[in-house]
Amino acid sequence: MFSFCADPATLDRLPWFACYLTTGVHMSFYVAFAKVVVLLLITAPVALAFGFLGAMAARAHFLPVSLLGKTYITIVRGVPDIAFFLFFVIALDQGVEWLRHKVLCSDWDQPVRQGSDFVVCAQAKLPLNSAAQWVHETYGFALAIITFSIVFGAFAANVIFGAMRAVPHTQLETGAAYGMSRHQIFRRILIPQMWVYALPGLSNLWMVLIKATPLLFLLGIEDIVYWARELGGTKSGRFTSYPHGDWRMWYFLVLLVFYLCFTRVSEILLERIMQRLTRGQATAGGEAQRKAGLL
């Protein structure tokens, strides 16, 4: 990075650290922080969508759909996320490639399962074998987002399902009295009104989601915990210009600070959203806001 970094062995403490902290691997470490934040920001709405679909399915009057929704919620919530991550990504990847294989290579005569091998035709590979490395990485990232979303979608579905039931029945009846159809009541009253009941549960879920990101390395993403372990481990002078002892403690301390700050910022933002949602609601919080406004 800096011009004086040519021979780190001769440097003093301060410039040594300046060079050490700007090596290529450290850049990957910093990028990993961005990766984690981006992944969280994408996962949150996608998981919410899964949750919404799950809750809608569970509420459905058509029994098979309702059973499907409830099964999704129960099964996925019952499995520890680690156990799920350890086999699900490979299964998902194979599933997608198998489907593509069926569509693209209908004239393929060999079996897809050969012993323990999973073999599909070259065109069905996703991404294609010849694709650039960044395509592979993006695909892995997308798989990780989907996996995270399926897991947290089940928890979100559970929260949203409860929130929909918590909307006061009188409000829905008022809608009916105005001559709204079932669909209109659902869209114009139930959905907007349920958020205030769902938010505490969803905020809690967001906090749990933040704390699940160290498991990303199981999904093949080089996340911050991966790099902290890798960079903090003892380094021999034979393989790096910056040998050092076991520094994992310091790297993990950085992670600790990062997570605490991230949690704090999230808490403040969620608090603001809650304040806005509460405005004018027929809840204890809304009542308190009204009184405060009157005084």
Partner: peptide, 11 residues
Amino acid sequence: APYNFTNDAGE
């Protein structure tokens, strides 16, 4: 290391 490792440049 020394079989395979990520060097200072990240490769």
